[in-house]
Design a protein around this nucleic acid. Structure first.
Length: 580
RNA sequence: GCCGGAGUAACUCAGUGGUAGAGUAGCUGUUUUGUAAACAGCAAGUCGCGAGUUCGAAUCUCGCCUCCGGCUCCA
């Protein structure tokens, strides 16, 4: 059997189970109103409007009932129907009637599928022929969540029941095991356990960076500074509070003010707390007269930003209210856009390959609340699409996903649970330079408006570190490890020798720790392993005599004795090369 | 913001109306260790916060806060 067929088979199983779920729900709640029940990655869901909230116990019962239905060898049979027939069949199902109306408008054919004698659904098909093709032990209802009808907040909220489903029980078990493994990588658990960051309830969505996390944070920023200095980026620091008027000029007051923290003075002046760096970058560009020779002119800025994200959207380090971006604004002439983008894509590749991260691009086009005129937008979108095609990289287009001031190219990554996150973003902006009346003198002496490219590579430091923790499962590459080596003297007799090793490591700027011999060696090794320290150095009689250490590496295991000079050289080289 | 779940010692968790518990971590002492958990003792709690019901609330009810899973949103 080909892979494509196998995929279709499991999709048919998932889709059929959505129908079986709806049948079980209707049995339990005859007045339930049905939404839709599509196939998703690894399973299915179905949306319902019910007289009461489902409990975890309800899910267990529904699952049991579904198994019974599946074992009843129910056939699936579909048949084309007319709109009039459809309206009659689903006269008590208001959401189905919505769909029928929509389908009629789009001139789609209507089909109804019956699951045995007990259930029918408006559906385009894609089922098993009979539920005997479904293994009753290879699916599981996992959770309930609220979901708006047709994905619109203004519509009623339905209860969405999620389920996992596979062809065999083994695949289901493997998937559940994988989820348990993913939980072990979860940065929300690992971060605090490894003392990288924490949260406090007085600052929702605003991380505390603990000493170890601050080391990682600073190493990432240092690397970023080195790489950007080479490429003629000029770092600036700008105010964290600006009067409302700045955001009126930039356009953020109309589009964004509600999501900003606002500070008020005793004299009733309103200040916006920095939520983005661009307006102040515009101010700096406009502070001098500029020539075409100055362009591209790049201002980088990593100031702390605050955004009042809605409470339900916060998610560990991946969605926060306080963060820093590795931001920069590149002011270019129109003819320089392509080159600048190519250069930025080069920076992206350099950075992501250092961590061994894979990513994809996403082009976001004109949103509904756009600023400026459609013609400029079309031109900008065309330019970006052309550059993306030329880059040879894979990309998808997300309609209406651009910033209000211009289209954007996002770098997309997945977390340990496979959820997609926007990391870096490169945004084209024809609007703000115009609004701030920025200009440069062109060759012929005429005044021209520059184009701004907003770009972040990591995205936000917070989100990036969250993804890194999950990517490395907390075992960072040596150059990022908060503790790079730990010295364990076998007993107190060797404390002095261990201290000497420790001093030499520190002298070479290697982040080292040392333990005393109060605990057994086994226990101290266990603790070092749990802290995911790359180099564990055991010293005892043999090592002291031969002036060596016994190396145990987090990934490579026990490596035996090595002289301290050789070890330091090796460690320094590994740090320098940023080995992953 | 909306739907659902959760919050008990620093951490992981037990405790369903009647004296707040265990393991780990911490501290003290003993042990001086050869590659993932030595032994003993001690200390540790506004049971998320606030109200209510009750003779009595970690436990029941209501409101709020925070976190988690979704939805919506995401410059």
């Amino acid at each position: 059997m080909s892979k494509a067929n196998k995929d279709t088979d499991v999709e048919n199983i998932r889709h059929s189970l959505a129908h079986v779920l709806a049948a079980a729900v209707l049995k339990k709640f005859p007045k339930a109103k049905l939404g839709i029940g599509p196939v998703i990655e690894n399973g299915f869901y179905y949306d319902f409007l019910l007289p009461r909230s489902l409990t975890p116990d309800d899910l267990k019962e529904l699952e049991k009932d579904m198994k019974k239905l599946v074992s009843g060898n129910l056939p699936f049979a579909g048949k084309k129907i007319t709109p009039a027939e459809a309206k009659k069949l689903f006269k008590d199902q208001r959401f189905k009637l919505d769909l029928i109306k929509e389908f009629v408008k789009e001139k789609k054919t209507l089909t109804v599928y019956r699951t045995g004698e007990l259930f029918m659904d408006l559906c385009k098909g894609g089922h098993v022929k009979n539920t005997k093709e479904i293994n009753p032990d290879a699916f599981k209802l996992t959770h309930v969540a609220g979901a708006y009808w047709r994905g619109d907040e203004k519509n009623s909220q339905l209860q969405r029941v999620y389920g996992l489903a596979f062809g065999t029980k083994k695949e289901l078990d493997e998937h559940l095991k994988m989820l348990a493994e993913a939980e072990k990588r979860d940065h929300k658990k690992l971060g605090p356990r490894l003392k990288i960051f924490m949260f406090h309830e007085t600052a929702p969505g605003m991380p505390y960076w603990l000493p170890k996390g601050t080391l990682i944070y600073n190493e990432l920023i240092n690397f970023w500074r080195e790489e950007h200095k080479k490429r003629d980026y000029n770092e600036i620091v700008s105010p964290l509070l600006n009067k409302k008027e700045l955001y009126v000029t930039s356009g953020h007051y109309d589009h964004y003010w509600e999501e900003m923290f606002v500070a008020e003075t005793g004299e009733n002046e309103e200040y916006g707390i920095k939520a983005m760096n661009c307006p102040n970058a515009m101010i700096v560009f406009g502070s001098e007269s500029r020539s075409y020779r100055d362009l591209p002119l790049r201002f980088a800025d990593t100031d702390t930003l605050h955004r009042y994200e809605r409470s339900g959207t916060l998610n560990g380090l991946l969605r926060v209210r306080e963060f820093r971006q590795d931001d920069a604004h590149c002011f270019v002439r129109e003819d320089q856009i392509g080159r600048e983008y190519e250069e930025i894509f080069g920076i992206v590749e350099r950075f992501y390959s250092v961590f061994g991260l894979s990513y994809s691009f996403r082009l976001g086009t004109r949103p509904d609340n756009f600023m400026g005129d459609k013609k400029t937008w079309d031109k900008a979108e065309g330019t970006l699409e052309k550059i993306l095609k030329k880059s040879g990289k894979k990309f998808v287009i997300f309609e209406k996903d651009g910033a209000f001031y211009g289209p954007k190219v996002d770098i997309i990554m997945k977390d340990s649970l496979g959820r997609e996150w926007q990391m870096g973003t490169v945004q084209l902006d024809f609007q703000q330079p115009r609004r701030f009346k920025l200009e440069y003198a062109d060759k012929d002496g005429s005044k021209k408006t520059p184009i701004a490219i907003h770009r972040v590579i990591y995205g936000s430091m917070e989100r990036f570190i969250g993804i890194l923790i999950e990517h490395f499962a907390g075992a960072f590459p040596l150059w990022l490890s908060p503790v790079q080596a730990i010295v364990l003297p076998l007993s107190e007799k060797f404390s002095k020798y261990a201290g000497k090793i420790y001093d030499e490591l520190k002298k070479e700027n290697i982040r080292a720790e040392i333990t005393n011999a109060n605990e057994t060696l086994g226990k101290r090794i266990r603790e070092a392993e749990m802290q995911k320290i790359p180099y564990v150095l055991v010293v005892g009689e043999k090592e002291e005599e031969s002036e060596t250490v016994n190396v145990r590496h987090y990934h490579r295991g026990q490596e035996g004795e090595i002289s301290i000079e050789k070890l330091i050289k090796k460690i320094k080289n590994e740090i320098e090369e940023k080995v992953i």
